[in-house]
């Protein structure tokens, strides 16, 4: 029994340390999830997470909107409230540019904002390298902030299955 408690305590301590470490090294980033709409069309939903950033974010640029995702003036593109966007111009401008019109709509430090979306025929499984490179624009400086490459979030259904599996495993171990 004491061994079991010691093991649990060690696990919780390690988890706390991991979380604290993650928090300390946090940087602003963009995560995304993908929904297969069928007929070869995918909906990309993006979340900008300004964790550990030095200033609020007033802009988000998808660097290869045309060349990787085939976006143009006819594409289905979504933006959060009080944000607008300039779509790519095929052959001339690759970027999809989002911008916040209102400081209250900015991605504040430590906050996250979703609602950035677009539909594309590009299969998310085909993305590689820096094809999904993103950058932010600082609200105070008006300058660019490298956000690296957007990270794929597991689907909600997959997360639920993972959580259920973990719960079952824990119950089974305690019963033993």
């Amino acid at each position: 029994m004491r061994d079991r408690r010691r093991t649990l305590g060690t696990l919780l301590g390690a988890l706390a340390l991991l979380l604290a470490g993650a928090r300390a090294g946090a940087t602003p980033m963009v995560t995304y999830s993908v929904t297969d709409l069928g007929l070869g069309v995918y909906q990309y939903d993006l979340i900008v997470c300004n964790d550990g950033g030095s200033e609020d974010l007033a802009g988000l640029n998808i660097l290869h909107g045309d060349s990787v995702f085939g976006l143009d003036g006819s594409s289905s593109i979504g933006a959060p409230p009080d944000w607008l966007y300039f779509e790519p111009v095929p052959g001339l401008i690759d970027d999809l540019n989002y911008f916040s019109l209102n400081p209250n709509a900015d991605v504040e430090i430590g906050q996250m904002v979703g609602g950035f979306s677009f539909q594309s025929a590009t299969d998310p499984n085909s993305l590689s390298g820096n094809e999904f490179a993103v950058e932010g624009i600082g609200a105070d400086s008006g300058t660019q902030i490298d956000l690296g490459i957007a990270m794929l979030m597991p689907e909600p259904r997959a997360l639920l299955l993972l959580a259920a599996g973990a719960a079952l495993l824990t119950v089974w171990r305690f019963r033993r």
Binding site: G59, F86, D95, N97, I137, S141, G142, T143, Q144
Partner: peptide, 8 residues
């Protein structure tokens, strides 16, 4: 000052 403008 490297401040960004977007243009179309």
């Amino acid at each position: 000052l490297s401040e960004v403008s977007m243009v179309r």
